[in-house]
Amino acid sequence: MTADLIAVVMLLAVAAYACAGGTDYGAGFWDLTAGGAERGKRPRWLIDHAMAPVWEVNNVWLIFIFVIMWTGFPTLFQTLFSAMWLPLALAAVGMVLRGAGFALRKPARRIAGRRLFGAVFAVASLLTPFFLGAAVGGVASGRVAPGTEPSADAWSNPTSIIFGLVAVAATAFLGAVFLAGDARRFEAPDLVGYFRLRALGALAVLAVLAVITLFVIYGDAPYVWHGLTHGLGLALVVVAAVATLATAWLLLRTPGAWSRVTAVGAVAAVIIAWGMAQRPYLLPTSLTVADGAGAPTTLRWLALVTLVALVLVGPAVVLLYWLDTHGELEPLTEADLRRNGTGGDGAADSV
């Protein structure tokens, strides 16, 4: 019972990272496709301002996933990081380069430096979700099992490739939806239409890839196919489809908070549907939740730590997102500093 609970918590953490971190990866995708320096100036300006307050905190979900997997399901951790060390290593390198590129491109004084760091940020934002999606595809296809030796087939098979493409499209979709809402918040009507159009385009691509995915997993991942077309997995697929249609309808009106909710709901429902489709297995047909779980005492302590983290960290993360979406975390500009320094209260002169 405890093992099942921890497995559900891990799945929910994966969904949280796919939505929160995926939104940032999507912003990087649109940074990459924004065009030249002049044409892409305003979209990149919005991306910088929208991401700056929250991009680091989204990695909390990834750390949480690793902690649960390592302590709660050590056999799963060992198997994944042995059989698919290369795509996971590439994804990790991409995360590091992406963060460094984003952090360094704004303070860089030379144009060449800004372009270099910007390119690193944008390209890494494309490659990282692809390799993470490819690793998930390797799991779903059943090619990874305890004792599996590292091989290209584990992560370059049809299911892995289509999952990687779906991951990129999903992050682009989330990023565009959130950026359209941010453009409205920053009172940039030209960028509202700019990102709304791209959100609808990404949604169309994602819908096509979803149909192709069903055909691919029918022949390449039969166990997951059966789970997605029956029971709880099918119900969640329907929820994802309804949320997707609702997002499209909201985007055709005025992008806002509800379009973000439905977009996140669509992506989260797909992630949870995948997890439900392969139950009771962590690795389809080879490693069940019960067989892969750690010692009962470890699981009980892990459940307690998870509860404490939910009580202590959860409200802080929610507050951060709320402050960001309500414009309470805007950075000071040079104009703000000059205005504050020459205010009528004489505070700056008295220092």
Results as ranks from 00 to 15, higher is better:
residue 284 P to C: 01
residue 48 D to M: 00
residue 137 G to S: 02
residue 178 F to Y: 12
residue 212 I to H: 07
residue 129 P to F: 02
residue 345 D to L: 12
residue 225 W to Y: 14
residue 134 A to H: 03
residue 338 R to A: 11
residue 46 L to W: 03
residue 337 L to E: 08
residue 268 A to N: 03
residue 200 L to P: 13
residue 71 T to D: 11
residue 173 F to M: 05
residue 129 P to Y: 00
residue 70 W to K: 02
residue 269 A to P: 02
residue 135 A to Q: 11
residue 202 A to D: 00
residue 120 V to C: 10
residue 137 G to E: 07
residue 138 G to C: 06
residue 45 W to F: 12
residue 53 P to M: 10
residue 229 T to G: 08
residue 213 T to M: 04
residue 5 L to G: 06
residue 116 L to P: 05
residue 256 G to L: 00
residue 255 P to G: 07
residue 141 S to E: 05
residue 283 L to W: 04
residue 344 G to A: 14
residue 22 G to M: 11
residue 332 L to E: 07
residue 95 M to F: 15
residue 258 W to H: 01
residue 344 G to V: 10
residue 234 L to N: 01
residue 126 L to V: 15
residue 309 A to W: 00
residue 302 L to P: 05
residue 274 W to F: 15
residue 267 V to I: 14
residue 132 L to F: 14
residue 193 G to A: 09
residue 295 A to K: 09
residue 288 T to A: 04
residue 329 L to T: 13
residue 58 N to D: 10
residue 169 A to D: 00
residue 182 D to F: 15
residue 252 L to Q: 12
residue 91 A to K: 09
residue 8 V to T: 08
residue 196 R to N: 08
residue 5 L to I: 15
residue 347 A to H: 14
residue 334 E to P: 01
residue 224 V to A: 15
residue 180 A to L: 01
residue 167 A to W: 04
residue 207 A to I: 11
residue 261 V to C: 06
residue 211 V to A: 11
residue 124 A to V: 08
residue 336 D to W: 03
residue 319 L to P: 00
residue 21 G to R: 10
residue 45 W to P: 03
residue 163 F to M: 15
residue 91 A to H: 12
residue 42 R to E: 15
residue 285 T to R: 08
residue 310 L to C: 07
residue 180 A to D: 08
residue 29 F to R: 02
residue 321 Y to L: 15
residue 291 D to Y: 06
residue 35 G to R: 03
residue 89 A to S: 14
residue 153 D to C: 01
residue 260 R to M: 00
residue 138 G to M: 12
residue 165 L to P: 10
residue 96 V to R: 11
residue 33 T to P: 04
residue 340 N to F: 13
residue 49 H to S: 12
residue 258 W to Q: 08
residue 8 V to H: 11
residue 329 L to M: 08
residue 294 G to E: 03
residue 259 S to K: 05
residue 50 A to R: 02
residue 19 C to Q: 10
residue 266 A to D: 00
residue 314 G to Y: 10
residue 149 E to W: 01
residue 185 R to K: 13
residue 104 L to N: 10
residue 65 I to M: 14
residue 22 G to W: 11
residue 168 V to K: 04
residue 224 V to Q: 09
residue 337 L to A: 11
residue 231 G to S: 04
residue 177 V to N: 13
residue 119 A to F: 14
residue 219 G to V: 07
residue 267 V to H: 07
residue 95 M to K: 00
residue 134 A to E: 09
residue 148 T to F: 01
residue 223 Y to T: 14
residue 115 R to N: 15
residue 163 F to Q: 09
residue 149 E to I: 02
residue 164 G to V: 09
residue 139 V to P: 01
residue 143 R to T: 05
residue 331 P to T: 08
residue 116 L to T: 11
